[in-house]
Design a protein around this nucleic acid. Sequence first.
DNA 1: GATAAATCGTTCAGCACTTGAACGATATCT
DNA 2: AGATATCGTTCAAGTGCTGAACGATTTATC
Lengths: 151, 151
Amino acid sequence: MLLVNDVKLTATAAFRLGVVGSRVAGRFADLLAERDLKTKHAGLLAVLDSMTAGGAASQLDVAKLMGVAPSLVVALADHLESLGAVSRERDPADRRRQLLALTPAGRALLEECAALANGVDEDLLAHLPRKDRDTFLRVLARLAAAEGLPA
Amino acid sequence: MLLVNDVKLTATAAFRLGVVGSRVAGRFADLLAERDLKTKHAGLLAVLDSMTAGGAASQLDVAKLMGVAPSLVVALADHLESLGAVSRERDPADRRRQLLALTPAGRALLEECAALANGVDEDLLAHLPRKDRDTFLRVLARLAAAEGLPA
DNA sequence: GATAAATCGTTCAGCACTTGAACGATATCT
DNA sequence: AGATATCGTTCAAGTGCTGAACGATTTATC
């Protein structure tokens, strides 16, 4: 992952963000792999939870919100369904649509993913002085918002 | 790129770093694409510059420092050679080795890449209060160092 | 010195991940 | 009704990378 090693380029925030971001994402991915999940599976669970609030959402809507091709959602949902984490049934009102919903097991799995992510956070930020850490997180939230991420 | 959209997960630094990092890297990649380069090409130029200080380095050494397979360096060097950015010649002292060196054009290209990276940085951080920005960059540098990146 | 073992660069097959085109089933418009 | 659009699905393809295998060369061992 160490793309660029020159002083001029490593000194940029862009480069450091890229590397630190992908390293951290990699650690999260490793933890998920032990649960037989890819990061996009966790993403689907999270998106589903945020969209439905207990209800169900169509695969196309999920794809749009995730920013991936609908065909990818098919494979992700297949796997999550096989794990018992999501249910899939035709919308009675529009039988073209497949309605995805979190099962109780899926909800528990999402909680587990969130706990893993928080653990990664903890490891990353534990050694920082409180004040630095607060500022860093605040700025990061602002940058994330500028990229269009919800608060 | 928007993997996870749930409040619980988006609120983590891990997630935000991952997304912001990949977005920023994507913008840099887009700029490089206009110059017919991938990020690893820029990485090779930078690594070469930092290793050689005007001299030359073997492809294997470059591969090790970049953290990629030697076979990938072949393709990267092929392309950069076709652009006239690096020269490639057999080491007279060990004719198994291909010595890579930056050409003047390659050095100029590296400068251009560094300018692009700095531009991305500027866009990212321009709106931040100076104090926040300084703290953010300082913490980021520290996190990058913890990941093993050179200062 | 001769022969075995290691090293460097290269090619190539293959994997992981993702997209886009095409299609069947269903719904909507006129 | 019949044309058109939409949803989910399958499948072929593209990208980016790795690891195995090989030829050319060098180093180690007897």
